[in-house]
């Protein structure tokens, strides 16, 4: 039995596929989208994460984290105001250059301000966990969504999980960047009911410049999935100044049209900056920041996509 690595499981997921779903988020991704709102999904290794909100302050926990760290990677950080008492609390800062993500501090942080992001499951354990929510899927027409990161990077694990879910009659969606050899993608086709499939840019050079990989493989896999009779829910993250020009949206829509009946819906996902704070949990760096596209802009793009005879929605 194979083990896989997840960074989250989210029940009552109402936006990743039909009905009410539970989404399993797998850790690790070959792409590096600057707008990514789940930065903790990118690295394959476990990462130390620090959430200021949960920190009780060094006085309350008697600096257990600092004492536990074998690398002296935890120093005193910014002050924060306690929501209830109004007191100023001394919190911590992780020196990322010294931290090797061993998790010794997280082990001693009972408040779970410091946690090691990433948890390993055997495929059987994950399937059993997901099956606990089956009654909700049954009443809502929902199911499980396997998301990431890029789930295809853990293909052996994913296939075992998919098999386990299908054996129990669960509707399964796979949320993918599409970036994997076709032989890998093909192994999922017997089990997946719906692919949530990202198309970020139609120009391969621009695609590579932004996210680090070209798009030919992604497009080829989409065509092959369509040819294999699979259903796709295409998702276009609408990123200001990157892919929101009319030319690219038209090209994307034309490509979807070409895929024919396979494409059930094209969802336009407006960029949002709610992930910004998450970067600070796992690094000192900040991601790109941009103004989210206006409602008018989104409506305009939706009309363009719809004009290709596609079922377009703003998500």
């Amino acid at each position: 039995m194979t083990e896989g690595r997840l960074y989250d499981i989210q029940g009552f997921s109402v936006q990743d596929g039909p009905g009410i779903r539970t989404t399993a988020f797998l850790k690790g991704c070959p792409l590096r989208c600057p707008w990514c709102h789940s930065p903790e999904s990118q690295a394959f290794y476990k990462q130390l994460s620090w959430m200021s909100m949960r920190c009780l302050g060094l006085d309350a926990c008697k600096s257990r984290c600092m004492k536990a760290c074998p690398k002296d990677a935890i120093e005193e950080g910014p002050l924060k105001t306690d929501v209830q008492t109004g007191e100023q609390l001394r919190t911590v800062h992780v020196k990322r250059d010294l931290c090797d993500n061993c998790g010794a501090c997280a082990d001693k942080c009972y408040a779970e301000a410091l946690t090691l992001c990433g948890k390993d499951y055997t495929s059987e354990a994950l399937v059993n966990r997901l099956l606990q929510d089956k009654s909700f899927f049954d009443t809502s027409g929902g199911g499980v969504t396997i998301s990431g990161g890029e789930p295809l990077c853990q293909i052996d694990f994913v296939v075992e999980v998919l098999k386990g879910l299908k054996d129990n009659g669960i509707h399964v969606a796979l949320d993918t960047t599409g970036f994997a050899p076709w032989e890998t993608m093909e192994r999922t086709t017997p089990y997946v009911d719906l692919y949530l499939y990202d198309l970020k840019h139609m120009d391969s050079a621009k695609h590579k410049a932004a996210v680090g990989v070209p798009n030919e493989q992604i497009h080829e896999n989409a065509r092959k999935l369509a040819a294999a009779g699979k259903k796709l829910q295409v998702r276009i993250p609408v990123i200001p100044m990157f892919n929101w020009d009319e030319e690219n949206i038209r090209a994307t829509a034309a490509f979807c049209r070409e895929l024919g009946d396979a494409v059930e819906v094209v969802q336009l996902l407006p960029y949002h900056n709610m992930g910004v704070m998450k970067y600070l949990r796992i690094s000192d760096g900040k991601p790109m920041e941009a103004t989210p596209p206006s409602d008018e802009k989104m409506a305009e793009l939706k009309d363009i996509v719809a004009s290709y005879g596609l079922n377009a929605t703003i998500h």
Binding site: F12, V14, G19, I20, S135, F136, T139, S140, G141
Partner: peptide, 22 residues
């Protein structure tokens, strides 16, 4: 935000029915 529109109503109903049937 979890329950907007008619789709949200359906999902809320599904949660309730699951609780009740259980």
């Amino acid at each position: 935000t979890a329950l907007q529109g008619a789709e949200g109503d359906k999902k809320l109903r599904a949660v309730m029915e699951t609780y009740f049937r259980g």
